[in-house]
């Protein structure tokens, strides 16, 4: 499988300096992403799941080299992007694209949506000048939008339609790898399904590879082949989507799962939840030991002092000192009994 890796992150970290005082001296760092290893295979959909503040958006941007990592390396199809010069980036960038969270702010309000999509063709010199308008029409077809909408301004479109424009823009450069950053979070539930199905169909049609960033494990379970769970900048669990969603091995995953409501009132009312207590610690000062121990109901002394490492298991990997003892309990929580 190794030769099939499209995107590889090895030991990737992204620290943002925290400046304080009049002199703006560096007073520490927010470690948004901290030592992440992740391989994304060609044609695969990897879900990146976590709460806000977990660093999942930052990691997505680092993989696309929209942000430069402060540690580790990112390779795309064998090309090392760390410290790559403008020449290399210019060649690679069209092959990886992003779909943004907020369809209201990710489209330029002063440009028609057609012009927004066409710009991606223009700046990358894709196709002959004369054929580009036709290409825009084809892209609109691809995302199941009426071609006549090219003339519309963003505010005249519904949220779902705007997100389709955002996808069309991302697909304009014929990318191989697409990062969808909470691409459905701002949409109505009924529209979320439309967009997720579109993403699914587009993968089949175009052979795309996705990193699907979301806080919704149920959606990740539905769309993704594998799920990686991120907590305070670190991957705490990774594995096939069905395994992670049905047999979580990390208490944090179990907590995320038990927060997803079941659309089944009697079961939902009867359910025992793993409710997280306390607030997410600041990524500027992560707690010592396991970064989850302040909120973990199963934390013991070893968790407070020693940071667990991500260890490979049968089909995935987990970073918890107690994952073996907890397996049965976490499974019970997940099944809602």
């Amino acid at each position: 499988m190794t030769d099939d890796v499209l995107v590889r992150a090895s030991g990737v970290g992204k620290h943002f300096p925290v400046r304080r005082g009049v002199l703006r001296r560096t007073a520490g760092a927010v470690r948004a992403v901290d030592g992440v290893d992740l391989d994304i295979h060609r044609g695969e959909i990897v879900g990146l799941v976590g709460e806000s503040g977990s660093g999942k958006s930052t990691l997505g941007r680092v993989l696309l080299r929209l942000l430069e990592p402060t540690a580790g390396a990112v390779t795309f199809d064998g090309t090392d992007l760390t410290g790559a010069d403008r020449h290399v980036l210019r060649r690679v960038r069209p092959r990886m694209q992003m779909v943004f969270q907020d369809p209201y702010s990710s489209l330029n309000p002063w440009m028609t949506v057609g012009a927004t999509v066409r710009e991606a063709l223009d700046v990358n010199g894709i196709g002959a000048q004369a054929g580009r308008d036709r290409r825009v029409g084809e892209l609109f077809d691809l995302v199941r939008l009426d071609r006549r909408m090219v003339e519309r301004m963003p505010h005249e479109l519904s949220g779902g339609q705007r997100q389709r424009v955002g996808i069309a823009r991302a697909l304009a450069t014929e990318p191989e790898f697409v990062v969808a950053d909470e691409a459905i979070a701002a949409l109505d539930v009924s529209v979320q399904a439309q967009i997720v199905n579109l993403l699914r169909d587009l993968r089949a049609e175009l052979g795309l590879t996705y990193l699907f960033i979301t806080h919704d494990l149920a959606m990740a379970r539905y769309l993704c082949d594998r799920i990686a769970v991120l907590q305070l900048g670190r991957i705490v669990e990774i594995g096939p989507a069905a395994d992670v969603a049905e047999r979580p091995r990390h208490p944090y995953t179990a907590a995320l799962l038990s927060a997803v409501p079941l659309p089944d009132p009697p079961r939902e009312r009867a359910r025992t939840r793993l409710v997280l207590s306390g607030e997410l610690p600041s990524p500027a000062a992560p707690p010592p030991g396991c970064r989850f121990h302040t909120r973990c109901p199963f934390a013991t002394d070893v968790c407070r002092t020693q940071e667990p490492v991500l260890t490979s298991e049968s089909s995935g990997a987990v970073a918890c000192h107690h994952h073996n003892e907890l397996a049965a309990e976490l499974h019970a929580i997940t099944t809602g009994s």
Binding site: S158, G160, Q161, V189, S190, V191, Q192, A193, Q194, V196, N197, R200, D216, L217, A218, M219, R221, Y222, A242, A245, E246, L257, V260, L262, P263, D264, R267, T334, G336
Partner: peptide
Amino acid sequence: EGLLRSLPRLDAAGERLTAIPGGL
């Protein structure tokens, strides 16, 4: 029914979500 069927379910995963086509 469409709203219910467009919800992804952890307990009954697998099949394709049936999105309600179109918009308001």
